[in-house]
Design a binder for these strands. Sequence first.
DNA 1: AGGTTCACTTAAGATTTACTGAAGTTTTTC
DNA 2: GAAAAACTTCAGTAAATCTTAAGTGAACCT
Lengths: 224, 224
Amino acid sequence: MKLLIIEDSVSLRRSLRIGLENLGFTIDETGDGAEGLSMAMTGEYELIILDIMLPSIDGITLLQTIRAKQLDVRVLILSAKQEPEDRVKGLLTGADDYLTKPFSFDELHARLLNLMRRGGLKTISDVIYIDNLALNLQLKLLQVDETVIDLTPNEYKIVECLFSNQNKVITAEKLSTYIAGQYDLVSKNSIEAHLSSARKKVRAAGSELPIQTKRGFGYIIQGK
Amino acid sequence: MKLLIIEDSVSLRRSLRIGLENLGFTIDETGDGAEGLSMAMTGEYELIILDIMLPSIDGITLLQTIRAKQLDVRVLILSAKQEPEDRVKGLLTGADDYLTKPFSFDELHARLLNLMRRGGLKTISDVIYIDNLALNLQLKLLQVDETVIDLTPNEYKIVECLFSNQNKVITAEKLSTYIAGQYDLVSKNSIEAHLSSARKKVRAAGSELPIQTKRGFGYIIQGK
DNA sequence: AGGTTCACTTAAGATTTACTGAAGTTTTTC
DNA sequence: GAAAAACTTCAGTAAATCTTAAGTGAACCT
């Protein structure tokens, strides 16, 4: 069982490492956000203990990136901030648990065990993050930060198809098949209308759908 | 055997602590609801002695939260209120026993021993709480506060399936399989009819089933 | 066996919500 | 600057879902 600790403070990091190693975990650690991210992306950790305040990349962004890449790893957030907004936001973007500093080591231990136990269950995964948009495949809805954008089934399906095919041009025919199945079809104009409506809704929520039109070919979402 | 005392009054807390420590229990204590909750959530306590009137989070809410998280812990409610409503409500939401102030220490001791003895048995567990609804998986019934709502088997199964799959959209086909098994099937319209009836019954009891329709996809219960 | 009850299904009407296609507008391309 | 492609809007139409009520059959009781 391999754990990754991403924590700014050297002393806290050390004491966590020692404590958890004594409990039988294998630990890697770093104090840098970017390094933490690249370590996390190797996929070799079952659980990450993650601080929010970090140099180079903050914890929430790191978490969003991990979740966007669909890594199956549990994340326990550690934070000095006690603002409830942060708590909610952290959990929303896919953390499995949350602990506010200061905390007792026993409490951390108990929560770790708890996370281990419910290991098989995916918690808040199955969300695709692009920019400040989150497409929740479980709930079938799109969020801008915390606000939910209400999409009709076809609007949702178009967005889902493009979100899960980033960096690929998707033709209108593909979208049509995606929406209606192999034996029905939806006109190109219909798709244009749905997409127009979806874009409008996202705009009304203060954001932008990152879907670009490739004139003559189809639509695409360009990853960063 | 570790006990947690969550009690507003410092003097009562102290005297309980001393008395119970003399009887051989290990005690943690707090006077604050929110702190009590986070302590309880560590899962390290076998029994919680819980006051109703508390700063920041009241005892009933705390208890509901603990039960919603499926923690296996016994809870003994302590309350100055003598209104029978509170008594019933406290017990309903998952307390294992109830004591009204003032009480003798011997009486508390006796009740504690009693709770310890029936330790192995899960008492009022296997109940899913959502809003003011309690779905009892053992007794196969749904309660609004104190009143029992009489659901037919299929109505119950639909509600059970959705209650135990919070935050997931459940399709009509899934519900059909859940009701009838893999080799039989129940028409979509039938499910609509059952659900309609269940909703009506809950409405008649003065509440609302928290089941939303995701048009084009299925049904969902959104957790907070 | 006959009668009663209860729950499940089905159907039909009401209601809500979404889809489509057309027409006008804007943008892009050559 | 004209033509093509894509965007936008809207109104009519079409689905999906809700609700109610009536029909059917199984289980239970007497």
